[in-house]
Simulated scan of single mutants.
Amino acid sequence: MSEKTPSGDPTAPDAFLTPVEHVFVRSHLGAPPELDASAWTLTVEGLVDRPLRLDLPALRALTQTRLTAVHECFGNPFRPDVPTRAVANLDWSGVTLSTVLDLAGPRPDARHVWFEGADTGTFAGESEVTYLKDLPLAQARAEVLLAHTMNGEPLLPRHGFPVRAVAPRMFGTNSVKWLTRIVLAADRPDHMFTTRFYTRTLPGESEPGPVREIDVNSKLLTPGDGRRVRAGACELAGRAWSFTEVVAVEIAVDDGPWQPAVLEPRGPHPTWQRFALPYDLAPGPHRIRSRATDTVGRVQPPTGARNAVHEIEVVAS
């Protein structure tokens, strides 16, 4: 799994929309495929009454929708409990999956949607692997966007040009890049990236399930981790996000108590939320932690999980 986080201004992630040049890049199967927008097509097949093949002009001629949503990488599938917090907040434009499915006419026995990208390669010792993910039809139809722009500009090759799926409120592994094929089926596909990797057993459950809904999480962004800052009054701030709305964020400094931060509401779109706490930092080294709680009562665990309490270290002088 190739991982890359573009370098640049470390304060950029604290903007409401993440600049494209600061958006993380993940690729399981090597370099992005070289796709020609004029030759690209998207097929919709399987359990549909009217199989489709749409080119880019035909897709763009359909009703367009904008969506702002948090976009988070689940992390390395070989190390699923290691926190990464590779996250961005992005404005997407494209066509809802439901619009395309209405044209194709799903049959009554269709229960799942498969999304396949154009990228192929070697992964986990297997060659000629394609990237394939699936979602329940009802959930996909209600939420998935077939996006061709990010933050108002055409997708870059590394981000899925010319069209990618965007599954809001779900981990990025479900938002298939370089999308070329959609299949409606009665069952889930038995595939490396659907049933072998990206599965986990959630608390209270006995069987593993697919990685889909994002966890409750937070990330301290100001001051930056490892920074030397001026002692005295400062602002401790960052972003929090979840599958549902975050309702509280608390911050602790050193061994002090958890203190409630001021949290911005999420609004109508599934975006991240800014939190901040004014604080008077004494001279010396400090450990600063943040934890978020969402509307269904999920709280970031203290340790041992991919969404464990976020912690940074700074030195005030």
Rank of each mutant, 00 (worst) to 15 (best):
177 K>Y: 03
197 F>V: 03
63 T>I: 00
12 A>M: 04
149 T>W: 10
223 P>R: 09
30 G>L: 03
27 S>T: 02
77 P>A: 05
119 D>Q: 01
45 E>S: 13
100 V>Q: 06
28 H>M: 13
12 A>S: 12
259 Q>M: 15
8 G>M: 13
35 L>C: 02
17 L>G: 02
253 V>T: 10
56 L>P: 05
24 F>P: 03
82 V>Q: 14
16 F>P: 02
20 V>M: 01
230 R>M: 07
240 A>T: 05
218 S>L: 09
50 R>K: 07
137 L>T: 06
63 T>F: 00
194 T>H: 03
301 P>V: 08
121 G>A: 01
141 R>I: 03
174 N>A: 06
290 S>I: 10
282 A>P: 04
264 E>T: 12
220 L>D: 08
72 E>F: 01
308 A>F: 03
12 A>W: 03
120 T>F: 04
70 V>L: 06
166 V>H: 11
47 L>K: 12
285 P>F: 08
29 L>Y: 07
197 F>N: 00
136 P>I: 01
257 P>D: 13
22 H>W: 01
270 P>Y: 08
91 D>F: 00
139 Q>F: 07
117 G>I: 04
166 V>D: 11
243 F>T: 11
71 H>V: 08
20 V>P: 02
174 N>G: 08
237 A>H: 09
222 T>W: 09
221 L>C: 10
100 V>C: 03
228 R>W: 04
312 I>M: 09
225 D>A: 15
228 R>L: 12
229 V>Y: 05
178 W>A: 02
86 A>H: 15
104 A>P: 02
135 L>P: 02
134 D>R: 00
50 R>L: 01
185 A>E: 02
147 A>I: 06
42 L>K: 07
309 V>C: 02
84 T>E: 14
290 S>P: 10
302 P>T: 10
85 R>N: 12
222 T>F: 12
30 G>S: 04
153 E>P: 01
174 N>V: 02
299 V>H: 07
207 E>V: 13
222 T>Y: 07
135 L>K: 01
276 A>E: 04
134 D>A: 10
101 L>Y: 07
226 G>N: 10
101 L>W: 02
149 T>A: 11
259 Q>R: 15
41 T>L: 01
184 L>S: 05
35 L>R: 03
116 E>K: 12
1 M>D: 11
314 V>H: 04
299 V>W: 03
298 R>C: 05
291 R>V: 06
293 T>V: 10
215 D>N: 15
240 A>M: 06
43 T>E: 04
19 P>I: 07
219 K>Q: 15
264 E>D: 15
140 A>V: 10
261 A>E: 14
49 D>E: 12
155 L>M: 02
269 H>T: 13
295 T>H: 00
308 A>S: 14
17 L>I: 00
131 Y>D: 01
240 A>G: 08
190 D>A: 09
227 R>Y: 08
263 L>Y: 13
137 L>N: 08
203 P>K: 11
88 A>Q: 12
190 D>G: 05
256 G>S: 14
169 R>N: 15
297 G>F: 04
314 V>I: 14
292 A>Q: 10
125 G>N: 00
140 A>F: 06
296 V>S: 05
189 P>K: 07
194 T>C: 14
316 A>C: 05
173 T>G: 06
44 V>P: 04
245 E>Q: 12
123 F>E: 00
121 G>S: 02
80 P>Y: 15
145 L>G: 07
33 P>Y: 06
106 P>V: 13
165 A>E: 07
196 R>I: 08
31 A>G: 00
